[in-house]
Structures are given as structure tokens and as C-alpha cells.
């Protein structure tokens, strides 16, 4: 199963993704790929992992391979498999792949297609894949996430964040199609505030996550969410993830 966590910037996607990764890390026998698709790289920090190489580094190396010539598609495919494995940061049953920040100019559509195929192939070897998507609709719109099974929309209680979530669902329905979609309302003061959000949207609301001092402390002190203890926010996120079928 491939689950992508999407939403407006600053609503807590990375926290939800990190808790999802932690929940999967506790499931013996299941191997999970965690993709930090936000160029800011917040998920790696949240998990206390330090990638030595990013997907963008892999992309640059493959471009150099293409430029050097003498490599057919099969050579490039096995090279990409090798480089992607080098880019994985492993922790127990988890493997993190960070997208990194593209710095070079120019169009490398063919390389990007090869990369997308390779990531989908890589995801196919894991039991579950979580993608912490870039804020907004761009990655969905550009079909970067075309093989996602479930789009977990995250918003806070602001009308703007819920509206962005609604927009993302519309784009996902058009560009992906057939995927599951649900909204998780993050950082609600109480059930009344979360209920108000639910009444104001046609999105399927999976649940709401309370403000939580433990999560705030882990964020503030850059502690690894892989060590996050049981707390109300964690429990709410895990309950929502169970509804998606991820865990």
C-alpha cells in the first residue's frame, strides 16, 4: 500500500508522516519505505535520520551516466537501482528516501520518468510506503504521485487549510483516480472545533488530532519521532491510519 500525506504548508503533514513511520516501525515483519518528498527535508529530521544521499543526488548521477554515453536502458535501470539503494537510510524495518532540493537548471523529463518508474518499482518491494508530500497540489498535479493508493489529507482547523485539502482531493481524483481519500484535522482545540470543520466540508473526515505537549516537545527539541511515547495526538493519528488501511 502506498499512502501519501498531503495538505497545505504548516498543517502538520510531517508530524503525521513521522507518526505513521513510527507505527509501521513497530509492526514486525512489515517493511516500510518512507519517502520525504518535501524538498525541505523535514521528515528525515523528525525521524532523527541523516540521509547521506538524496534522490536529487541520484538524479544528478544518472544524468552524468547518460551524458557519458555507452549505457543502454538496462544499464541505466540497474545503475538507478544501485544508486537508489545507496540513497536509502535504513532504521530497523524502515528505509527513508529523501527527495532533496533540485539545484540544476534544464529539462530532464526522460530522467525524471526513469526516476519515477524506479521509485514505483522500489515501493513495490516494500509492504507499505508513506510519502510525505510537498505542500500544495504540485506533486499530485504533475502525476508524481500517480500510483498512490490513499491520499491522506491533513489540515488544521482553518478554512484555508480545509479548502486546500479539498482542492488536492479534486486534483487527485482527476490525476490519480481510484485512490482512497480522507481528511485528518490536526491541532484542534476540542471535539467542537473539529466538529465544526467536519460540518463545513464534504470530505470524509477520519478523525481529529488534539494539541499535544508531547508532540510539541518532540518538535521543539528535534527529538526522533521514532521514540515518541503514547500520547493523545499519537493515538488519534494511529486511529486515523487504521481507517486508511495502512496499519
Amino acid at each position: 500500500m502506498i499512502l501519501s500525506v498531503c495538505g497545505k504548508g504548516g498543517v502538520g503533514k510531517t508530524t503525521v508522516s513521522a507518526v505513521a513511520a513510527q507505527a509501521l516501525s513497530r509492526e514486525d515483519g512489515r517493511r516500510a519505505l518512507v519517502v520525504d518528498a518535501d524538498p525541505a527535508g523535514g521528515l528525515a529530521v523528525a525521524l532523527g535520520l541523516e540521509p547521506r544521499k538524496t534522490l536529487n543526488d541520484v538524479r544528478k548521477e544518472i544524468i552524468e551516466e547518460v551524458k557519458a554515453g555507452g549505457r543502454d536502458e538496462k544499464d541505466l535501470a540497474v545503475s538507478l537501482d544501485y544508486l537508489l539503494a545507496e540513497a536509502l537510510t535504513e532504521q530497523g524495518n524502515l528505509a527513508l528516501l529523501s527527495i532533496g532540493r533540485p539545484e540544476d537548471a534544464g529539462c530532464y523529463c526522460k530522467v525524471n520518468v526513469i526516476l519515477k518508474d524506479a521509485i514505483e518499482g522500489l515501493a513495490g518491494r516494500f509492504d507499505a510506503t508513506i510519502i510525505d508530500a510537498e505542500a500544495g497540489i504540485e506533486q499530485v498535479n504533475r502525476k508524481v504521485l500517480s500510483s498512490v493508493d490513499y491520499v491522506l489529507l491533513v489540515s488544521d482547523t482553518s478554512a484555508k487549510a480545509v479548502k486546500v485539502a479539498r482542492t488536492i482531493k479534486g486534483v487527485a481524483d482527476q490525476m490519480i483516480g481510484g485512490q482512497g481519500t480522507g481528511l485528518l484535522v490536526n491541532r484542534a482545540r476540542d471535539a467542537d472545533e473539529a466538529g465544526a470543520v467536519e460540518r463545513g466540508t464534504d470530505l470524509d473526515v477520519l478523525g481529529w488530532v488534539p494539541e499535544d505537549d508531547t508532540v510539541r516537545r518532540f518538535d521543539g527539541e528535534e527529538l526522533s519521532f521514532l521514540e515518541l511515547p503514547d500520547c493523545p495526538a499519537r493515538a488519534a493519528i494511529v486511529t486515523a491510519l487504521e481507517k486508511t488501511g495502512l496499519i
Binding site: 540497474v78 545503475s79 537501482d81 544501485y82 544508486l83
Partner: peptide, 9 residues
């Protein structure tokens, strides 16, 4: 098994 032809590795 993973192979990197350009590095012969």
C-alpha cells in the same frame, strides 16, 4: 544484488 556498471561494482 545491485550492480553499477560504470563503477564495475
Amino acid at each position: 544484488v545491485r550492480t553499477m556498471p560504470s563503477r564495475q561494482s
